[in-house]
Design a protein around this nucleic acid. Sequence first.
DNA 1: CAGTATAGACAGACGCTCTTACTATTCGGA
DNA 2: TCCGAATAGTAAGAGCGTCTGTCTATACTG
Lengths: 161, 161
Amino acid sequence: MIGALLSIPSFDLSARVHHRLHSRGFREITDSNSTVMKLLGPEGDRITELANKAGVTKQSMGYLVERLEAASYVERVADPRDGRAVVIRRTKKGWAYNRAAAEEVAKLQEEWTQLLGPAKMKELKSLLAELVAKLGHHYEGSYLEAVTRPPGQRRGSQARS
Amino acid sequence: MIGALLSIPSFDLSARVHHRLHSRGFREITDSNSTVMKLLGPEGDRITELANKAGVTKQSMGYLVERLEAASYVERVADPRDGRAVVIRRTKKGWAYNRAAAEEVAKLQEEWTQLLGPAKMKELKSLLAELVAKLGHHYEGSYLEAVTRPPGQRRGSQARS
DNA sequence: CAGTATAGACAGACGCTCTTACTATTCGGA
DNA sequence: TCCGAATAGTAAGAGCGTCTGTCTATACTG
C-alpha cells in the first residue's frame, strides 16, 4: 500500500514538527497557517500569488493571512506598483518561526538518518526526488527549500535539502 | 526538504484517486470519509474503535459515520453483545467503493512503476516500509492493506502491496 | 446492589474552505 | 484620452470537520 507508506512518515514528520514548534512558543500556528509560512517568498507575496501557490481561493487565503497578521507573523504593505494590491511580508516573529521550523525539520531528518543509516536515507531521498520530478511537479524553490533569510542576505550552508 | 518529497507524491496519489472515484460516481465521499472507509474493518467496527483508529474524538467520528450512513455507504447495526454499542458495517455500495478505490490505487501504482522502473519502485517501497517500521507505527492491517472483501471470503491474489 | 466505567448522542464553538457578489484599481485598444 | 475588460482584494453566507462539555443508557465490578 504505497499510499500509507508515504502518508505515515509525511504525517509523522509534520505532526512532530508542529508539536515542537508549539512547545517553543509558536502557539497560534495551525496546519494551514504553516503552509502559508512555507510558501511565502522571502520578499513577500500578494494574496493572489499565495492563493495560487497553495491551490486555494483568494478568499480562503485572505482569511489565513488575516489570522497570521493578527498574531504578528506577517504584515500587509501597500504595493507601490499597484494600488489594488497588498504585499504580505514576514515580520521578525515570522522569520523566527521559519528559522525554528527549519531547525526542527533538520533535527528530525537527522533522527531518521540515524534510524535508516546515511546510505539508505540518501537513497530514499534520491528516489523520492526522482519520483516527484517525473510526476511533473514544478514547485517554486520556496516549497522544496526552506525560506529562512530575508532578501539581500547570502544563502548560506544550512536550510539545504 | 524531506517533508515536501514525501508530501507531494502522497498528496498527488490521494488527489488523483479521489478524482477518479468521483468520476466513477462516488460523489459524496470526501477526504475524511475516505479515511473512514479505509479504516473500517471487514466485519465492521464500533464508533469508538473507528475514532481510535483515526485518532479523532467519538463525536467527530459520529458525524462522519452519520454522513456515510445518509449516503448509504455504511449501515448501523445494534451490537448483540452490548446494548450500548452500535456496529458500523459497509453496505453493498460501501464494498463497491472500496473495491473501486483499490483498483484505482493499483493503476496509479502501476503508472509510477512505469515512471521509475520496477527495480527502483521496489527499492522505494522497501525503504519506506523500513522507515515506517522504525518510526514505531503499528497500524492494523486494515490501514496498510486494502479491505476489499466481506468476511468469510478467502483473501485472494489482489489488494496486496 | 451500588458505584464506576463505557458507548454513544446532543449542543455549541471554531477553523477552513467554498460560492456569489461587490468595490477599487489598472490595463489596453479605439 | 477615455471607456470597457481584466485584476486585486473584500464581504457575506454556507457547509464540513474538528473540538470541548454535557447528558443518557447500558455494562461491569466489588
